[in-house]
Amino acid sequence: MKRIISLLAVLAVAAAAVGGAGTASAETRASNVDIVQTAVAAGQFTTLASLLQKAGLVDTLATGGPFTVFAPTDAAFAKVPKATLDALAADPAKLKAVLLYHVVPGRVTAADVVKLTSAKTAEGRSLAIKVVNGSVFVDAAQVTTPDVGATNGVIHVIDSVLIPQEATATASKTIVQTAVAAGSFKTLASLLKKAGLVGTLQGKGPFTVFAPTDAAFAKVPKATLASLAKNKAKLRSVLLYHVVKGNVPAAKVVMLRSAKTLNGKAVSIRVNGGNVLVGGARVTTADVKASNGVIHVVNKVLIP
């Protein structure tokens, strides 16, 4: 890390380049500094720089290449559960795999990216790429600043961390246990119990659950909740409308227009302004892993 910090004094030009990355060509910006120097000078990639150091990838990205890096900001890393980051930081091999999942060999500018549907990463797996309403998504992350040039490649800034499911430790808790442990799904847990669905969602699965928080349930009129609580069949129907069979990570969700739920009806899916909307509810946290599936947190209750 001393090497990274020592670069800050001479990299004002790189910081300016990132700040004005909206229009200039990747070949004309930050042409005198490498990828790591450019990221450090920008001031919004301190977590990424620290993790690159822990994984032993600083020299690789500073001297090798050319590379294309989809770089998550500090704000993007702040969305990742602390337990997940701590687990990765404690396992250099898995941390390295996750970081290399953000790196594509070669210089792939935005003009090239928009022509692709996928790109093979230095980690070995491929990223899904999609353009929606003029916005570029890499897996579930949106590119917020493209074509930040460096001497040995190009950086595309993204708003979420890309974590391939296979690269992280297998979750030990089921979907229900994970929701209960989070502490923000008390209403959902209570209603699952009333509907007799706890056993189902603790089963083998896998399941994908769009889980409304307690704040989401607080938006539902009390009379509606009371009515559902008294009618087990309707309650089950509503809750199962939040569940999709199979493990559907965010990278696949953004590729869909709808998904059939265990309720029997299909829920609509669309991407709007960088937000993923499921049946009108916004996904606020994606890819919360469980031993029998995945949870995507939503800000509204889905009522067919």
Rank of each mutant, 00 (worst) to 15 (best):
K2N: 14
A14K: 02
A15N: 14
A16V: 13
G19T: 09
A26S: 15
V36T: 10
Q37F: 04
T38M: 12
A42I: 11
T46V: 09
T46L: 11
S50K: 10
L52E: 02
Q53G: 02
G65P: 03
V69Q: 02
V80T: 05
A83M: 01
A83D: 15
K94G: 07
L99Q: 05
D112H: 13
D112N: 15
A119E: 08
G124C: 04
R125V: 06
V138A: 03
T144M: 09
P146R: 12
A150M: 09
N152V: 05
I158S: 04
S160V: 00
V161M: 04
V161D: 00
L162P: 01
P164F: 04
A169Y: 00
K173C: 00
Q177G: 11
T178N: 10
A179C: 09
V180N: 08
G183N: 12
L191C: 05
A195K: 04
F210P: 07
F210W: 11
A216L: 05
K219H: 06
A223K: 14
S227Q: 12
A229W: 07
A233R: 05
H242M: 08
V244E: 04
K245Y: 03
K252N: 12
R257W: 00
S258F: 03
S258P: 00
A259Q: 12
A259T: 04
L262R: 06
G264M: 08
R270I: 00
N275P: 01
N275Q: 15
G280K: 01
T284K: 06
T284E: 08
T285G: 02
N292V: 07
N299Y: 09
K300P: 00
L302F: 00
P304S: 05
